[in-house]
Design a protein around this nucleic acid. Structure first.
Lengths: 328, 328
DNA sequence: TCTAGGAATGTAATCGAATACATGCAGCGA
DNA sequence: TCGCTGCATGTATTCGATTACATTCCTAGA
């Protein structure tokens, strides 16, 4: 494996000049730079990122710390981020916390030790401690869920409260009156926001809030099934807002086993448009979340902050939209 | 940030002793080691993996190079691998090739430059060149798809030919006669294997092979839709074997738009049991692939080969099973 | 008592690139 | 012509851990 030293020898210059030529330092004369680049080419020289990182105390790696790699929303985010990353010469280290704060903390530690160039995270809670990253000057972008205000952290969020409110208002408009809500884990921002939107819509429609119609799940299939079962203990439930697609699967499956028809007996609106949701239209309506765009925006925020570390933090808010009543 | 030097100073020893004490080298006296560890603890010393990697020419990172991060089968593989990795102190760098050989090649280069401790890959073709990794002594495990024989590469495969054959035989047994097959891209091992299994079953049932009933898709939704449309140009098609769940979504969606009833008009059996496939039972039967186990097995092969580099390569073959006709 | 050998530890080189500081040389004004 | 400025390049240190080789000291055997 050719090193910088070999290139230097071949080009008849010092390693310092090689380093400068390769990184495009302006104080290298054009013909010298040419010679160096040619020598590097001939030797098939590839810089060793480990050595470079050790010296610079910074890698070309972004850490993406997400709650669940099986969640299609989050994998779309990952793609959006990855595309921005690889276009800019970064690689993405994917870390799966499983909503476990201890795993999350471990991965934050790894990102720090590896001197990640940036971290994109869906915090398990707003209190997730990213101070250790900030102290090291590693930029952090929170996606989907914010971190406690006061920290200098960029964020990309989806206005899911508004989307939830609009969805429930729509249900009211078509005559639904006893509307349930299956949301994610307590203290998870998106879960709470979606309930808030739901409650706002009920209030606006002068429908009474009923605590037993709101169930907190785990954002996974099983939680959706259990939550739906509990909600159905109330009589006359005629619609349910479900906070993500995996829980929607569980909820729909439970309806099926009870012999209820989603769409007529119980209308379902779910967040996230996974590929398969189209199959269930019009029984299920979906709220489209621009997942890929979220990942892209996160990557762009990271790039900008890497270029300009002192920049004031900002939050990008994207809209989620209720899909058409029938898909075709 | 405390370094080894600080620990050495505090414990009153040299950095060499610190290094040995921390890595558990036997030639360090017990009380010295104690002292060193105590000093490290007090200073909150954390080793710098970059420095360590530079010296050892090896990181604690595994690269997972997969075709599509949105494919639920592959994300399950990723989870299985990640669990083994983190239990053994490795992190996983996730790389998404999108079935593009050039991106694949770029990621192989990155894995090499970063001196990954191991690489797990779903090759875009059997000819994918991993020589550069092998020359550097980086162990490679092929998952889901093999690499050309002759290379000293471990592999974890699923016997999908047998599963495909059994599935089609089952279709024949219930009276289906004109059976189509939607498979993945040409030259992708699993895609070809599934067609082979399909053809074997037809042959055994003395049904004529018909080329127009076999369509190659892209393992994505859109490919499934297009393939199904082409197959339906044949009259009397009464069943279709689909090679993965994303294409099944497209195929089912097309049936729906044509007003055909999956399960009765056209029976569908699809590879991969995504969470939502349960919703479509009994219209669709699924072939369960042990994706998580594949990832785990890959991780274990990697660990063993890291421990014992000269070990002869082996292939682990796991079975895929046709699920019950109705799920409950 | 002397010495060979081994255990415990220290010294210093090493991995490969980046960069602070040093040097040499050309150009320019006085 | 002298000396200053600044560009181009070189020299040598640095990042932090690992490890080959050196040293010290103790013990056992002759």
């Amino acid at each position: 494996m050719a090193t910088m030293k070999d290139v230097a020898a071949r080009a008849g210059v010092s390693t310092a000049t090689v380093s400068r030529a390769i990184s495009g330092h302006p104080s290298v004369q054009a013909d010298t730079a040419q010679r160096v680049l040619a020598a590097a080419e001939e030797l098939g020289y590839v810089p060793n990122p480990l050595a470079s990182s050790l010296r610079k105390q910074r890698t070309q790696v972004w850490a993406l710390i997400i709650a669940d790699i099986n969640n299609p929303f989050l994998t779309q985010v990952a793609r959006g981020l990855e595309d921005v990353a690889s276009a800019a010469g970064y690689s993405v280290l994917l870390c799966n916390t499983d909503e476990d704060p201890r795993r999350e903390d471990a991965y934050i530690g790894i990102a720090e030790q590896y001197r990640a160039a940036g971290v994109v995270i869906t915090p398990t809670s707003p209190g997730t401690d990213v101070a250790v990253l900030q102290e090291r000057g590693i930029p952090v972008v929170a996606v989907d869920r914010p971190l406690t205000a006061g920290l200098d952290v960029d964020a990309v969020l989806i206005d899911s409260r508004r989307a939830a409110r609009a969805a429930v208002a729509g249900l009211v408009a078509v005559g639904r009156r006893r509307i349930g809500c299956i949301t994610g884990p307590r203290r998870v921002y998106t879960a709470e926001e979606r309930v808030l939107g739901y409650r706002e819509a009920l209030r606006e429609a002068h429908l009474p809030p009923e605590e037993s119609l709101v169930q907190y799940g785990d954002y996974k299939e099983e939680g959706g099934r259990a939550a739906m079962a509990t909600i159905l203990e109330n009589d006359g439930v005629d619609a349910v807002l479900v906070a993500n697609s995996l829980m929607a699967v569980g909820a729909l499956d439970l309806l099926r086993t009870r012999g209820l028809d989603p769409g007529s007996d119980v209308e379902i609106i779910a967040f996230d448009d996974a590929p398969w949701t189209a199959l269930l239209a019009p029984a299920v309506r979906v709220i489209h979340q621009p997942a890929y765009d979220v990942g892209q925006a996160a990557g762009q925020l990271l790039l900008r902050r890497i270029a300009e570390p002192g920049r004031q933090s900002r939050t990008v808010m994207l809209a989620a939209n209720l899909g058409p009543e029938t898909r075709r």
